[in-house]
């Protein structure tokens, strides 16, 4: 069979139009922006960990370095960074707990546990751990 007898479905290849994704695509929708902020929050979570490690090191080095560390922490810039970090860590935790039901499928007695319960149990665990930490630090 020669080429002329075959059907030529792709004889004319159309010129497709491709639109480039804007660098600022994450500003185009509220949900995209929330997503980017959630991703960004990981930087501040990391900062929280680093700060805590420095605190532990200062305590380990004795009273003088500990007092120096506390003094440094009172610097307005450090306080501002820590305040912003607190906001982002809380934001991270809340968005994380709200997303948890989508990734977790829990079954009890054959029926699927509603997502609200899973989110609520995450929040409850968070509250208990926070209360425990507060008790150890402030009361214990």
């Amino acid at each position: 069979m020669g080429d002329k007898d075959r059907p030529a479905y792709t004889e004319y290849h159309p010129r497709w139009y491709r639109k480039r994704v804007s660098t600022y695509w994450w500003l185009q929708r509220g949900t995209y922006l929330v997503f980017i902020l959630r991703e960004l929050s990981s930087v501040f979570v990391a900062w929280g960990v680093v700060y805590l490690l420095f605190l532990v090191r200062a305590i380990g080095q004795g009273e003088e370095p500990y007092k120096d560390f506390i003094g440094w922490s009172k610097h307005p810039v450090v306080m501002a960074v820590n305040l912003i970090s607190l906001f982002f860590v809380v934001f991270h935790a809340i968005t994380w707990f709200n997303l948890a039901p989508q990734a977790m499928v829990v079954r009890m007695r054959g029926t699927r546990v509603p997502g609200k319960w899973i989110a609520a149990s995450n929040y409850a665990a968070w509250a208990v751990v926070s209360a425990l930490a507060a008790w150890v630090i402030l009361g214990g």
Partner: peptide, 16 residues
């Protein structure tokens, strides 16, 4: 997937 979650909001059949 970075879990933007927009696919689930767009889905007309609640597939998630």
């Amino acid at each position: 997937c970075t879990f933007v979650g927009e696919c689930t909001r767009a889905c007309p059949k609640n597939v998630d």
